[in-house]
Amino acid sequence: MPGGNTGIIGWFNFLHKGIGFFAYAMHRISGIVIVLYLYLHFFVLSNLLRGGVTFNSLITSFTYGPYDIFIVMDILLSLVIFYHGANGIRLMLNEAGLGLKHHKLLFFVFESVAMILMLLFLYYAWQVLLSGAGV
């Protein structure tokens, strides 16, 4: 962390450091999680080469069992991605000199909108999962 004396471990120490530090640390933590997921995504998609039957049965096992715990991880991943995107937009605006005086308010507004969009996305994605549950 820039000019910091607590290092990466210090990112997890949010107490008494304010919302700005929380935003700063979570942006980096969420970024690392997303990069790790990106390579997991590459790995899963590589199974396309094994053919339709194998790939579909793999995705079905992640979605409808026995490994449907991955749905919980997907929901957590959505949280991380929507958080990171909303905070990223705020940072871009701040870098352009916009909203600097109200950066805390902007953080809450952008994150609130992102969480609403995330809930909408999860709702519609869930409907799709339910529609395929009986297949």
Binding site: G4, N5, N94
Partner: peptide
């Protein structure tokens, strides 16, 4: 800790402290 020297605003790193 982030100080005013490092932060243009909370959550925004200034150009001198920036890692990129």
């Amino acid at each position: 800790m982030m100080s005013n020297m490092n932060m243009k605003s909370e959550g925004t790193i200034n150009k001198k402290a920036r890692s990129m």
